[in-house]
Design a protein around this nucleic acid. Sequence first.
DNA 1: GCAATGTTGTCCCACTTTTGTCCAGACAAA
DNA 2: TTTGTCTGGACAAAAGTGGGACAACATTGC
Lengths: 335, 335
Amino acid sequence: MATLETISSIDTAPRHPIRLVANRTGLTVDLIRAWEKRYHVVEPARSDTKRRLYSDYDIERLRLIRIAKHNGRRLVDVAPMSLEALRDVVSEDSRFDAAQNNQAEVYRPSWSNPLESTDTQDSVDAMLFAIQTMDQHRFDHLLQEGLVKQALPVYLETVIGPLLREIGESTRLGKLRIAHEHMATAHLRTFIGALRFRETFTGSEPKIVITTPTGQLHELGALMIAALVSVDGWLPVYLGPNTPADEIAACAMQSGARAVSLSLTYPADDPRIPTELTRLRSQLDQKIPLFVGGSAAAHHQELIARLGLQSPLSLNGLRQSLNELRDRGFRLQSA
Amino acid sequence: MATLETISSIDTAPRHPIRLVANRTGLTVDLIRAWEKRYHVVEPARSDTKRRLYSDYDIERLRLIRIAKHNGRRLVDVAPMSLEALRDVVSEDSRFDAAQNNQAEVYRPSWSNPLESTDTQDSVDAMLFAIQTMDQHRFDHLLQEGLVKQALPVYLETVIGPLLREIGESTRLGKLRIAHEHMATAHLRTFIGALRFRETFTGSEPKIVITTPTGQLHELGALMIAALVSVDGWLPVYLGPNTPADEIAACAMQSGARAVSLSLTYPADDPRIPTELTRLRSQLDQKIPLFVGGSAAAHHQELIARLGLQSPLSLNGLRQSLNELRDRGFRLQSA
DNA sequence: GCAATGTTGTCCCACTTTTGTCCAGACAAA
DNA sequence: TTTGTCTGGACAAAAGTGGGACAACATTGC
């Protein structure tokens, strides 16, 4: 899939001005220059008039260094590290960090073998088997393991998404009991819910309200989105499932959110959906885009078009729209 | 166990600054230095500008010493110990602790302290304020902070329980919006859900199925119980809310659970409750006790009595019953 | 029971190193 | 013109270091 490549190999083309980099990383412009001056943390390309031009690669580096610093690393130590080394350090630190990690259990030597494309299907199958045998530890282990192997957005798209579909399908076909589905869902609710706390927030991130409208009780899709956008420098205001339109609008207003995202899954033809969407769109500031996703979004195409809502086709599409919105927004802010 | 071997080959390369060590161990920077000054607990290498540089080995030592201290050991005694000796001491202590656990709490003087009651009230108030202002970071910080201060069972009973009631009440009175309640609930769902993974499981724990019956959509009570029992050496099989009686019974059978616990909150007078409870009791092996708790349990007193269900009055009551059951079971098992 | 003594977490000081912010003057972009 | 970026340097806040003081508490000896 194209998605895989675009996400995993980071673009090194220089194109971002320093202000945008500052906004995305949460660092100040001065600081970025100071780091460059003192430790050559990043050495951006220059325009023909000597303006710095940063690549996505640079931005990723800076973000990682910022997190490493937050974890107690010294700039001197992390500055010369490669992106991979930084990733390792950061993930190691955040695994150990937080007084949460009471005891051992860590130091796992297992992921030496790289991931192949068929692996994800295997991985999903293994999880389904763990669910069927009600082996919670194994299930949890598989979830954690898969997550370490790849970036969160890829993981959500290639593992968690398919897993959810398989669980639904298997339950419908009677291959899994409702009890199995319940257990798996409850487990995933905790797991995905915790994902967004892997990121460090600066407080300057734009906010996005994420929920499902009245009648939509399945929250895992919305929760995945909350985890996803937190990777890209948004702060999700997550409201859980089944939130009335008025409340969503009120929440967006109070929190000063820059976007709203709804997830529709089941029931796909709930008669309340048109009412709620219309109501929400009218109560919401016109400048705030309203994203509608989930498997049931396809059932409401004309409605979505009529109301002028955004309906990205994949998690990746949503990501891109939000990235654009975020960067555009920052320009306005500073102007 | 596998963990031991992997840990025993700990890197002794000095590379971590003191701040990071503080983060990882939960000790303060001052304290780490004081320990070094007084007892040479660790003797870190130095950078060329005399900054301390700790190795993974040092960190592991400090972490173990911290646990040993927490268990009541004196610093003087543990300071000169080798890593292996420390491990032995710590694991011995925690085993002893676990055995004593149940009574130990009652004797702690801090609970009878009158300050305590206002303390937790303050803490709950602070959380409510964070919810009202939609300050997710603050809310999360308060939750984590409170948890550090006291044992999990106490925390659940004195902070989380009251907090849930206050949120419900405030929403009913209009002091909080539904959106606030949703946000708080979603957040708590993740937080409480993660609590049970703080424990390390050996695989030999007796299992207990935890859920809510059909019609009961609020899961936080059940989730609290899952976290609670995992502290006491049970392995919760958590099914989320709204599980049909047949499925609960099937799950108990497949997983070989030794007990089942249901949480009833809202609606208190749902007509499905008697049907479901009766059905579940009849399908479940008579040797498996069925616990029924939650605020709505009081509405079904005669039913509970008639079916011979257990209905502990508090989390603590449930704990005690389960402890007895577990110990009785263990005796049988070994006899 | 009480005083003396030991233990231990926290804080303060004076000093050094590291790191974040600010400024001035030149130039580029809008 | 106004705003933003660039360079180089200055400055100050933050964090680390060694040394020591001190209060809270536990233990010991009488």
